[in-house]
């Protein structure tokens, strides 16, 4: 079975559609979404509905979903808060209710899914080095954990000596998941990549081969950027789609 794992879509419908098209061409059977469906981008309602329609969807909450309702909102910078306010208005009551009820984390048979880290997920820590990855590994109830949040595709894994190592993945190269190791895999961002590559990022886990492949999908970001500006959202969010950082 092939499972596509997407994260940090941020209301970017064009990037999402490009990824879904790619996933379909790869024969993906199931979809998992690691949260931050909304925020930053111009199409929250359409993006959410597209994701909800995906086959066998498993979805967890991101900090941008939490910001719509919770105390997390107060700690945000003003321009992000303004976008969250705008996003809340675009969503129906039913959609808001759906997002409100998303879990922080969940596990399938072979892997764990969380937006930020399996350690204190409700505090939204960033996993950006091997120490933080080790914390997440130890808190996770599976040997393989997928997460997002930083918008950087990375593979953290445990070497035979117990040391946690980091590997920057190359798109299209399948990465074997060793039975003898533990992994924390950051799937990158669909809607707002920040690793100096403006192509949308997602991964496919192949349960038969026990491997993970990162995919980078170029899309016409100028359409999304124009919508961001037309809807009066901060220009910065449009610009970073072009630069990918």
């Amino acid at each position: 079975m092939k499972i596509a794992i997407i994260s940090d879509i941020h209301s970017n419908l064009e990037a999402l559609q490009a990824c879904l098209q790619k996933a379909a061409s790869l024969g993906v059977d199931q979809y998992a979404c690691l949260g931050d469906v909304v925020g930053y981008g111009p199409d929250p309602a359409e993006t959410l509905e597209t994701i909800r329609a995906l086959p066998k969807l498993v979805i967890v909450r991101g900090n941008h979903e939490e910001a719509l309702f919770g105390t997390y909102y107060k700690g945000l910078r003003e321009h992000i808060r303004a976008t969250i306010d705008w996003t809340r208005e675009q969503l129906s009551t039913e959609q808001r209710e759906y997002l409100k009820n998303l879990p922080y984390q969940t596990s399938l048979a072979e892997f764990h899914l969380v937006h930020a880290s399996a350690k204190n997920p409700q505090k939204w820590p960033y996993v950006y080095d091997t120490e933080l990855a080790r914390d997440c590994m130890q808190a996770s109830d599976r040997r393989l954990t997928f997460l997002g949040h930083t918008h950087y595709p990375e593979v953290y894994y445990e070497g035979p000596s117990g040391e946690v190592l980091c590997h920057t993945p190359q798109a299209g190269v399948s990465i074997p998941i060793y039975t003898s190791s533990r992994y924390v895999i950051n799937v990158g961002s669909v809607g707002q990549p920040r690793d100096d590559n403006n192509a949308a990022s997602f991964v496919v886990y192949n349960s038969a081969e026990k491997d993970v492949t990162f995919h980078r999908v170029p899309y016409d970001f100028s359409i999304t950027a124009k919508k961001i500006i037309d809807r009066g959202l901060p220009q910065l969010f449009a610009e970073r789609l072009a630069t990918g950082n």
Partner: peptide, 13 residues
């Protein structure tokens, strides 16, 4: 070269 390597530079094993 394109896959995670099981040994780090400091690994004595």
């Amino acid at each position: 070269a394109q896959l995670p390597d099981m040994y780090s530079v400091t690994d004595e094993q």
